[in-house]
Computed example of a mutant assay.
Amino acid sequence: MTASPYELVSRHVAALLEDGARAAIPPETIAGTLITEAVRVLKRHRTLDDIRSELMFVIDNLEERDYEFMRP
């Protein structure tokens, strides 16, 4: 069975965090570097406005919210 994109990336992020811990690199430094690399990859395939929209969506949804309309 093929891993989903989330499963694939999640495994690699977990490994990066372990490698970073062994090298005394804080997890927030690893995360910031991942964001930078993700944007670099996106710039090769998507427009700046599209990337900006995606990042704004993530920023706008940083806080966990209880959306009543999404309840079963």
Rank of each mutant, 00 (worst) to 15 (best):
P27D: 07
V13T: 04
V13A: 02
E7H: 09
V13N: 01
L62R: 12
D50K: 09
A21W: 00
M56V: 12
T29W: 00
P27S: 03
L62C: 06
E37I: 00
P27R: 03
T36I: 12
M56Y: 14
E37P: 00
E7S: 08
G32D: 13
L42P: 00
E64S: 09
L16C: 04
E7A: 14
S53T: 11
M1F: 03
D66Y: 13
V58K: 04
L55T: 07
M56P: 00
A15Q: 07
D50P: 01
F57A: 15
L8R: 14
D19H: 04
A24L: 03
R52V: 09
E7K: 13
L16V: 01
S10T: 06
A38S: 13
S4D: 11
I51A: 06
E37M: 08
H45P: 01
D49S: 08
I25M: 03
I51D: 01
F69T: 01
F57R: 15
G32T: 09
T33M: 09
A24R: 08
V39E: 07
L16N: 06
L8E: 14
D60A: 12
R40P: 07
G20A: 11
E54G: 11
V9F: 13
I25T: 12
D60M: 02
P27F: 03
S4W: 11
R46K: 06
L48M: 08
E64C: 09
I51R: 05
N61D: 11
P27Q: 03
I51S: 02
R40E: 14
